[in-house]
Design a protein around this nucleic acid. Structure first.
Lengths: 214, 214
DNA sequence: GCAGTAAGTTACTCGGAGTCAGTTAGACTC
DNA sequence: GAGTCTAACTGACTCCGAGTAACTTACTGC
């Protein structure tokens, strides 16, 4: 008998909320729980309890555990992609864009350690539509890198699309692994240093992708 | 009286087997099942049934699902590491060793698609001792690469150990991602071509790791 | 006030990880 | 060949978490 209607005399939030608001609440709780305890360690009951809601509601909005996880993943990846894209677009030339992209990537992950924990767990998705969707999200980064690689090539030059894909996948895989390594090692070298080393490693090789030495 | 000793008159395998033999049987079955259906899709009952044994026996030998999965993972990684190491050691110089290592890596994964499926799933391991052990197994590759990078440096040169770690992690991550990409894409470019592209990408950059341009 | 609907819940099923309390098969004596 | 010791092995559970069916309740527009 604390309250009869929504009009709460106390400052408590209303028991019933707008769907969009609830979805956001659930997503936030899920992101936190997945980040802290991993995919396996998180139960749907946990998340529901965290929001103060019952489990079927979570299912009604997100369909399944995979669906909820994927929603977290997509949101985080979108944020990360935005930060990195902005950094890249702001660069005065391709070389500095690339460096800025690396720095932005590692900085974001330093600043959002839990976000990263979620992304690393993406392999958790059982094979199926959710796993494919996760791949799609990841492919955005590969596209961004591929674009940069192409920009760095002289205008009218024969381009081997396979090579570009290989290079883009390689760079994306390298940065992903470095991110994992840095967080596991509890820090590692600072973003700028890692970015410098990567530039030294990749930059000259990128030139040769124009197709010279066999 | 079909038999008095282990010597069975029928061709049937003995119902009771030596522990080591059973362990191997279970490991084989697990590898196959994990490879076909993934970590989530495989149940301990499945594996036990495949061997023709009851579940508690599997638990007695491997402790947990994670433990069994880790055992598979370790064995496969060891095989892969051996193949790649051999290729690298056989090379006449560092450049050709590295190329040979790349080719061996991608070839092995082409020839053992199921093995790779298991390795990709390694993120499945719940956080804990098993996950750490999995990291250890992976670190072997990083060490191998780091050794090659060091060999490529001029004898008496100041070496930044951080840089070497970054480079080794980057190369390892790149090849891992490429392996995933190639199997997903159902082939992709052949091992030799990918290896050539990687050499073009990395080889020049490796020179500059000696510490020149800031 | 009352119908209609969106938000929310209780109380389940079902499957798979992990365990307990045993039961044999075979080896080794005497 | 009967006894006995041990390691391989099992039936029958518990427990937890994903997912669901059927129902109730607060708010909205009229």
């Amino acid at each position: 008998m604390t309250s009869t209607t929504t009009g709460d005399t106390t400052g408590n939030p209303p028991r019933r909320r707008d769907r969009a608001a609830r979805e956001r609440e659930i997503l936030d709780a899920a992101e936190q729980s997945f980040g802290e305890r991993g995919y396996q360690g998180t139960s749907m009951d946990d998340i529901a309890a965290r929001v103060g809601v019952s489990k079927p509601l979570v299912y009604q909005y997100y369909g399944s555990k995979d669906g909820l996880f994927l929603a977290c993943l997509s949101r985080l990846r979108a944020q990360l992609l935005e930060v990195v894209s902005d950094a890249v677009l702001a660069g005065p030339d391709v070389e500095r864009s690339m460096y800025a992209g690396f720095v932005a990537w590692f900085r974001f992950l330093d600043d959002h350690p839990r976000a990263w924990a979620v992304m690393v767990d993406e392999g958790m998705l059982a094979a199926g539509p959710a796993a494919e969707a996760a791949d799609q999200v990841r492919a955005d980064f590969v596209d961004l890198i591929a674009t940069m690689v192409r920009l760095n090539l002289p205008a009218a030059h024969e381009v081997d699309e396979d090579d570009i894909q290989v290079v883009a996948q390689a760079i994306s895989g390298a940065t992903e692994r470095l991110a994992i390594w840095r967080t596991r090692a509890g820090g590692g070298p600072p973003p700028e240093k890692v970015a410098r080393t990567l530039m030294r490693l990749f930059w000259h090789g990128l030139d040769t992708t124009r197709g010279g030495t066999p």
